[in-house]
């Protein structure tokens, strides 16, 4: 998920860094209003939680690799979009400068894709959905799961856009990278949605007071929130569309044939609707975006089912006693 240095052109990195710096500065300003003197401990701790949680590996079905939580939506749901964006940015900064995980120059792009889109955009989707669905546990968990899936795909779309900008002068077609990124992130996104939903369900069962209910917003901000949510959803659909703009054969099929990744082919979850294109007698463009929406709907239904299925009433691991004695 982290963009390494060297993949994007320096000019794109610098532009992304400027945008991200503005976003981080704005988050800092809003945060000091929202959390006051709790801003530093809560945000710093959330960043530490996300960093530590990224060390927990989740095996991908049948594949030899494993994924991990990205945490943008999780952090934003717990602490709001400003603290969420900052927490993810802190994780990325520390990973880049002190652990050489991610890139120095591409830090801005990473912060933008995962922090700004992941936390701000993810939170907008979550809050907009929750406004429509209500405040039940199921609504909270499934809204967050959908937001997580959409934010990951939106980040992939942005990466494709940034990569296209970086490489457009070199005179070749980057659709192979796009296909790889979208398929990979559709998978990662399902993982992200499942983990975010499950973790939130667990937290809700133990300390529901830690997850704030969305507050009523003035009309202008509510419109802004729905607008942001729409933008993220549009980006996610665009990600699903990106590979089909070219007339070339599906890059992933070619990659998997060449590298012998037969498992990738067979283990592809049914969500990725075979090659995204539903055989409908309409224009291909529409069928693909329909596939995207259907995919979103399936993730949503899955999230609702998951939220209902997962009930953490067993206590196999004991929580340390509260210290409020």
């Amino acid at each position: 998920m982290h963009i390494r240095d060297g993949i994007l052109g320096p000019e794109v990195c610098v532009a992304a860094a400027v945008v991200s710096a503005c976003a981080v500065a704005y988050s800092l300003r809003r945060l000091r209003v929202d959390l006051e003197d709790r801003a530093v401990p809560l945000t710093g701790m959330m960043a530490a939680i996300v960093f530590a949680a990224q060390m927990v590996n989740f095996p991908l079905l049948g594949l030899p690799v494993s994924g991990h939580l990205l945490g943008g939506v999780l952090a934003a749901v717990m602490l709001g979009p400003w603290a969420g964006c900052l927490a993810i940015s802190l994780v990325l900064i520390v990973q880049a400068v002190l652990f050489s995980d991610g890139g120095l120059l591409s830090l801005g792009a990473n912060v933008f894709n995962m922090g700004v889109v992941g936390a701000w955009g993810g939170h907008a989707v979550y809050a907009a959905l929750r406004r429509c669905l209500g405040t039940s546990v199921t609504a909270t968990v499934s809204s967050a799961a959908v937001a997580a899936w959409l934010s990951v795909l939106a980040a992939a779309a942005l990466f494709c856009f940034e990569f296209g900008l970086s490489s457009h002068s070199s005179g070749f077609d980057p659709s192979g990278v796009f296909t790889l990124m979208v398929v990979y992130h559709a998978l990662i996104g399902i993982g992200e949605a499942l983990i975010t939903g499950a973790v939130l369900a667990f937290v809700l069962s133990r300390r529901a007071d830690l997850i704030p209910a969305p507050t009523p917003l003035p009309a202008v901000r509510a419109v802004g929130q729905f607008g942001t949510a729409g933008l993220v959803a549009a980006l996610a659909v665009a990600a699903l569309l990106a590979p089909f703009k070219s007339e070339l054969p599906d890059g992933l099929d070619a990659v998997s044939q060449q590298l012998g990744f037969a498992s990738l082919e067979t283990e592809r979850p049914p969500l990725l609707l075979d090659d995204y294109a539903i055989p409908l007698p309409v224009e291909a463009w529409w069928s693909v975006s329909l596939a995207g929406m259907l995919g979103t709907a399936i993730v949503f239904v899955g999230a609702v089912l998951l939220a209902r299925a997962v009930r953490w009433n067993t206590t196999p691991l004991t929580l340390a006693d509260n210290t409020d004695v």
């Binding site: 709790r38 809560l42 701790m45 717990m78 983990i195 499950a198 973790v199 133990r206 830690l210 953490w312």
Partner: peptide
Amino acid sequence: WTISAQLIGLLLLRAMERAERTH
């Protein structure tokens, strides 16, 4: 998957409680 998610949830709860104490 469920165990790992639970692990993260538990870590999150403990860490948030620690953040309250540190505050």
